[in-house]
C-alpha cells in the first residue's frame, strides 16, 4: 500500500516536472525564434543605422545655428524653443522645399486673444 502511494506521488511529481520542462522549453523556443528573426532585421537595418546616424548629426548643427540666429532677435524666445520650432518646421517640410524661420513671436504679443486663436483653430481644422 505504502509503495503504491509512493509510486503515485512520484508519478504526480514526474508529470509536473515534465510539464515544467516542456512548457519552459516551448516558451524559450518561440522567443528564441523571434530573437533570431529580429536579429536579422538588425543586420539588414545596418545600412539604415548609418543613415540614421548621418541624419541625426545634421539637424543638430542646423538647429543650433538656427536657434542662435533667432535667439539673437528676441529676449523671450529661448534657444530650446527656437530649436523645437525649427525642428518641427523641418519635419513637416519635404526634401525639395526649405523654410527659413525669420521670426518667433510669443503668443502674449499677438493682437488676437489666445482663446480666440484657439477657437479659430478648432473651427477651421478639417476632420
Amino acid at each position: 500500500m505504502k509503495s503504491l502511494l509512493l509510486s503515485a506521488n512520484s508519478l504526480l511529481l514526474a508529470d509536473a516536472g515534465k510539464t515544467v520542462l516542456i512548457g519552459a522549453l516551448v516558451v524559450f523556443a518561440v522567443l528564441v525564434a523571434l530573437t533570431l528573426i529580429f536579429r536579422l532585421f538588425g543586420v539588414f537595418g545596418g545600412v539604415r543605422k548609418e543613415e540614421n546616424a548621418a541624419a541625426e548629426s545634421v539637424p543638430e548643427e542646423l538647429i543650433a545655428a538656427i536657434a542662435g540666429v533667432i535667439a539673437a532677435d528676441s529676449d523671450e524666445v529661448t534657444d530650446e524653443v527656437a530649436a523645437v520650432i525649427a525642428a518641427a518646421v523641418a519635419a513637416m517640410s519635404d526634401e525639395k522645399t526649405r523654410y527659413k524661420v525669420r521670426r518667433i513671436t510669443p503668443v502674449g504679443k499677438s493682437t488676437r486673444p489666445v482663446w480666440a486663436a484657439a477657437g479659430i483653430a478648432q473651427n477651421t481644422t478639417p476632420f
Binding site: L12, L13, L31, V32
Partner: peptide
C-alpha cells in the same frame, strides 16, 4: 531582440509555481 530571452526567462515563475501547486498534493 535579446530582450525576448529576458521575457522568456521571466516566465520561469509560471512553471515553478505549477510544480509547487501540484506538489502540494503530496
Amino acid at each position: 531582440p535579446k530582450s525576448f530571452l529576458l521575457g522568456a526567462a521571466a516566465q520561469l515563475g509560471i512553471f515553478v509555481t505549477f510544480f509547487g501547486a501540484r506538489a502540494l498534493g503530496l
